[in-house]
Amino acid sequence: MLWLSLLTAAIAPGMALLVYFYLKDRYDPEPVHMVARMFLFGALLVFPTMVLQRALVLGLGESPVLYSFVYSAGVEEFFKWFVLYFVLYKHAFFDEPYDGIVYSVAVSAGFATVENVFYALLNFVTFSDLLLRALLPVSGHALFGVSMGYHLGRAKFSQQREKRFLLFAICIPILYHGLFDYILLLRTNWMFLIAVFMVFLWVRSLRKVRKANDRSSRRHLHPQEEVKMSTFS
């Protein structure tokens, strides 16, 4: 059935991105049940987010800047940060810098997946529409999650600068997300600008992935992994 195919196409990108970043954990993969739980938290965040966004629009009115940096980026990234900080940050499973990235991407992927499903079911979409969303909004959420998770990892294991990195963990994703949405609202040159911006986000995110893995306390337990990485670097 067509609707089932569209539903699968809407779910697949978020799951694929989550698996990709999960497998990037070189030293101590997280329990699948915990990752799934954070994915579910992210999925459930869509509902309070929609309510608050609607209330803000009614109360403050609409403008491209408000929509991009407050209603969309501000509200969505705050809720993600809130869940990660109060549910995960002091959890025993969060014991490596890269764990922040895994769990943050899980929350972001859950949010983006439900958002994508709503879009697919409530609009007359084609598979090309869903492909574009996979490359832009869904990937965007995952990459914002990498930034948030990286700085949460820095905060957790850099106690002298904990507050600074906790602030970075929410402010930088809001900035990236806001710029992303603002570019999409532009009527001229948006395709070129968003392509450049997505390349920037991917390059920066993969660097954060490498840095977070390099800060693992378990690196010395995997000398063969270090040899492999040095061979291909």
Rank of each mutant, 00 (worst) to 15 (best):
R54H: 10
S230Y: 11
V51D: 01
F78I: 08
R210F: 11
G149I: 06
S72F: 09
L18H: 10
L175V: 13
Y150R: 04
T126Q: 07
A134V: 03
R187L: 12
S205A: 15
L23N: 08
N123C: 03
Y89K: 02
P31V: 09
A9Q: 08
N189A: 12
M148W: 05
F39T: 02
R37A: 13
F124E: 15
L60Q: 05
Y71C: 01
S108R: 00
A155Y: 05
H141F: 03
L66N: 04
R219D: 03
A106D: 06
P29V: 14
K24M: 15
D99L: 09
F232P: 04
M38Y: 15
H220I: 09
E225P: 00
G74Q: 13
R187W: 06
L136F: 08
N116W: 02
G110C: 03
L185P: 08
E76P: 01
S205P: 09
H222R: 15
L206M: 13
H220S: 15
F157L: 12
D28K: 14
I174F: 05
L186N: 11
L18Q: 08
A155L: 07
P64G: 12
S233A: 14
H91K: 13
L179A: 14
V125I: 10
A43R: 07
M148C: 14
F47S: 09
F79R: 00
Y67F: 14
D129I: 06
L167R: 13
A9M: 14
N213G: 13
H141T: 03
L6G: 01
F197M: 01
V65L: 15
F168D: 10
G140W: 04
V203H: 10
V51G: 00
L221S: 10
L23G: 03
G14H: 02
R204P: 00
M198G: 01
I101R: 02
A142W: 07
F180H: 15
I183E: 10
R207S: 11
G14D: 01
